[in-house]
Amino acid sequence: MPAATPARPLGFGLGLRPAHYTQILDGKPAVDWFEVITENYLVGGGRPLHFLDAIRARYPIVMHGVSLSIGSTAPLDLHYLDGVRALAARCQPAWISDHLCWTGTGAHNLHDLLPLPYTEEALAHVAPRIEKVQERLGQQLVLENVSSYISYASSAMTEWEFLSELVRRTGCDLLLDVNNVYVSSRNHGFDARAFIDGVPTRAVRQFHLAGHLDLGTHVIDTHDAPVCEAVWDLYAYAVERLGPVSTLLERDDQIPPLTELITELDRARAISHAALQQVAK
């Protein structure tokens, strides 16, 4: 699929959560865009689609899926893809993203984002699937790096080499989750900055920021806490290297009041602004 014209950065957004629906519509908060979990809106009707339509009328939206299972050795779920395409026709997202992972095989869904071995075999398996998905959706797919706790003995390249090669073979774009880079770098002992240096600059369409649980010996991606200082530093580094990429703050558990998330989002704005000024000097 030929690369689309690069989308303009959307600014600073939040993950859309039902607890905030009415506040968003009543208060018109200073959030530039919202990211929605695709699967939560693959429903017939009622409140989810009602609020999605109403919020979409006021804000740009990005669709972020968790069940594509692009790395699975089970066949692609075409029924699911058609649902995603229909939802995209309804809410006209700026783009559609999911994760570089597998979530189950056979008919199963483990509802988790499991890492792939970084091998030529996996590349040869995943790349044609990305192409099929892009064809079916009629647009570029944006793929996110996941947090991982294990790596495979068979891996023959780094995660960023694997991602870069997928971009080269398929023309897909990347969602760089800065927190996931940090979490995986701690768990696997690689240099987080090398990851950011290693991905193709022009392919990075979006950043994710989120909190995690630091257990000392290892780190677990929990999305239930504010972004930590080390991840803010890494974010500044990513902006310096990759530019004003659309930035999204994720919170999936222990969801605080909207105002608290907006304050945290303002910090992302300030860090991004400072990093870009640093580059300009």
């Binding site: 988790d112 499991l114 071995p117 706790y149 294990i150 790596s151 495979y152 003995a153 068979s154 891996s155 768990n187 696997h188 290892h218 677990i220």
Partner: peptide, 15 residues
């Protein structure tokens, strides 16, 4: 166990 790289195989329990 063989497929998962040491020494992190105990972290499989996180999944």
């Amino acid at each position: 166990q063989d497929a998962i790289a040491a020494p992190a195989s105990e972290r499989w329990t996180i999944y």
